[in-house]
Simulated scan of single mutants.
Amino acid sequence: MGTVHAIVASIAVLAVGFSGVAALAHFRPILSGMAKAGVPTSWMVFPIGMLKTAGALGLLAGLLGAPLIGTAAAVGLVLFFVCAVHTHLLARDYSAQFALAIGFLALVGTTLALDLAAR
């Protein structure tokens, strides 16, 4: 694993991990964006919070020496954020949360690309 890959993956772990914990805790600033996108509040813990948190832990495992787990987590997170972007587009929600979903997709997509390039 190269230095750039480790830095990008570490940023992804922190960002996605924070986002997952925020969803699990029903962090007030994200609730309105979820409502605009038509996401039920009941989905905040499972699947949204749990999947983001598990993905962040998987990326961390990849950084700590389990590269296949890290790759699987990156693939899962890319799929998750593709679905998040799609959900915002369907709801015609172009708020800050839509921009964040695109940013997260770019971050985990870059992590995955760097991971695959290192093989």
Rank of each mutant, 00 (worst) to 15 (best):
M1K: 08
M1H: 08
T3M: 06
V4P: 02
V4T: 15
S10E: 04
S10Q: 06
V13M: 01
V13H: 01
L14T: 07
G17P: 03
F18L: 15
V21E: 03
V21I: 15
A22R: 05
A22Q: 05
L24C: 08
H26I: 04
H26N: 13
H26C: 07
I30N: 00
S32C: 00
G33T: 09
M34E: 09
M34C: 10
K36L: 13
G38N: 07
V39Q: 03
V39I: 15
P40M: 06
P40N: 07
T41M: 03
T41R: 14
T41N: 01
V45R: 13
F46I: 15
F46E: 01
F46H: 05
F46L: 15
M50C: 11
M50K: 02
L51T: 14
K52Q: 15
T53F: 01
A54I: 14
G55E: 04
G55T: 10
A56G: 10
G58N: 10
L60Q: 08
L60T: 07
L60N: 06
A61C: 11
G62M: 03
G62P: 05
L63S: 05
L64G: 06
A66Y: 14
P67Y: 01
L68S: 12
I69G: 01
I69P: 02
I69K: 00
G70I: 08
T71D: 00
T71S: 00
A73R: 03
G76M: 02
V78R: 04
F80R: 07
F80Q: 09
F81P: 10
V82I: 15
C83D: 07
A84P: 09
V85M: 05
T87S: 10
T87W: 00
L89N: 10
L90E: 13
A91T: 11
D93M: 09
S95A: 09
S95E: 05
S95I: 08
A96R: 14
A96W: 10
F98C: 12
A99K: 08
I102L: 14
I102C: 15
I102A: 11
I102K: 01
F104H: 13
L105A: 11
L105G: 12
L107W: 07
V108C: 05
G109D: 04
T110W: 00
T111S: 08
T111A: 03
A113H: 06
L114F: 04
L114H: 05
L116N: 03
A117M: 04
A117T: 07
R119V: 15
